[in-house]
């Protein structure tokens, strides 16, 4: 058996796909090759499950240790890590929970996994200075409609149907806390980082739609029209301005751009 075949067969043994590798292995004077190979096999599954527990602490608290471990092993079997850093092993976990029975029937799981992952992403994503309200002060009123935003590179925003933003801090403090698992809501969560501090904020669906539009490159003027369609013409200007001001105050925006005198727009 050549080296490549040895490695593939060894890995198949770790993944539980075949036991053929045992014929190539020796144990020691006290233990069989099978027992000693099990050290590797057990370490593989427990190491990945532990790493997922570290990256999804609130999901683990929500599910309980045993249920989380069972889920983690099912996930690892479906999505083996393909990244040099174990830190990225869980990147497909929210989608896995959303798609796979029985987890897909409990929206809390997918929402909490998405929230945990957003926080982990923001923790060490690329740094950038944040723009502030002062960046708006210099925009002449006639050019406000042309404002475009480049958001902070750590920003992640996603819809949830359960109040995981309220439950997460309580769960991390006490995993045994009683949650109303029937609770549902319509909101989105923004996660980003200011300096080294990861922040999050729940936003309503209208603000999330405005955020998605401006993340896709829409101008503030276009965002105002979007807000007007949902909130009404009278309320739109104040609501749109409030949304924009919030993002800037929170440090979720990196760069404010706008047309200037003589520009094509």
């Amino acid at each position: 058996m050549d080296l490549s075949r040895i490695e593939h067969t060894f890995q198949d043994g770790l993944l539980g796909r075949s036991q053929d590798i045992l014929r190539q292995l020796r144990g020691n004077a006290r233990e069989s090759a099978e027992t000693m190979f099990a050290v590797y096999r057990n370490a593989y599954w427990s190491r990945l499950a532990e790493a997922l527990g570290n990256d999804f602490p609130a999901l683990k608290a929500l599910m309980g240790d045993q249920a989380f471990d069972r889920m983690a092993r099912a996930y690892i079997a479906r999505h083996p890590s393909q990244h040099p850093s174990i830190r990225w092993a869980g990147r497909n976990l929210p989608a896995f929970l959303a798609a796979e029975a029985p987890y897909r029937d409990e929206p809390w799981f997918t929402d909490m996994a998405r929230f945990d992952w957003g926080l982990a992403f923001a923790f060490d994503a690329a740094a950038a200075p944040a723009a502030g309200l002062a960046n708006l002060a210099g925009v002449p009123p006639e050019f406000w409609g042309s404002i475009r935003l480049r958001f902070h590179p750590t920003l992640d925003a996603f819809p949830v149907s359960t109040p995981v933003d309220e439950a997460r801090p309580r769960l991390l403090e006490n995993a045994a806390i009683a949650l109303d698992r029937q609770a549902r809501c319509a909101r989105a969560i923004m996660v980003w980082r200011v300096e080294h501090d990861v922040r999050f904020r729940a936003i309503d669906p209208l603000e999330h739609a405005a955020l998605e539009a401006m993340q896709a490159g829409a101008t503030f003027g276009a965002m105002c029209e979007l807000v007007a369609r949902q909130a009404g013409l009278d309320a739109a200007p104040a609501r749109a301005a409030q949304i924009l001001q919030g993002w800037l105050e929170w440090g979720a925006v990196a760069i404010v751009e706008h047309d200037e005198l003589g520009s094509a727009a």
Binding site: E7, H8, Q11, L14, Q24, Y40, Y44, S81, Q82, A89
Partner: peptide, 16 residues
């Protein structure tokens, strides 16, 4: 070695 076929087993696996 830590894996083959694009998989990272995140373990220090032995070589023949």
């Amino acid at each position: 070695w830590t894996g083959v076929a694009g998989i990272n087993m995140h373990d220090l696996l032995p070589l023949p």
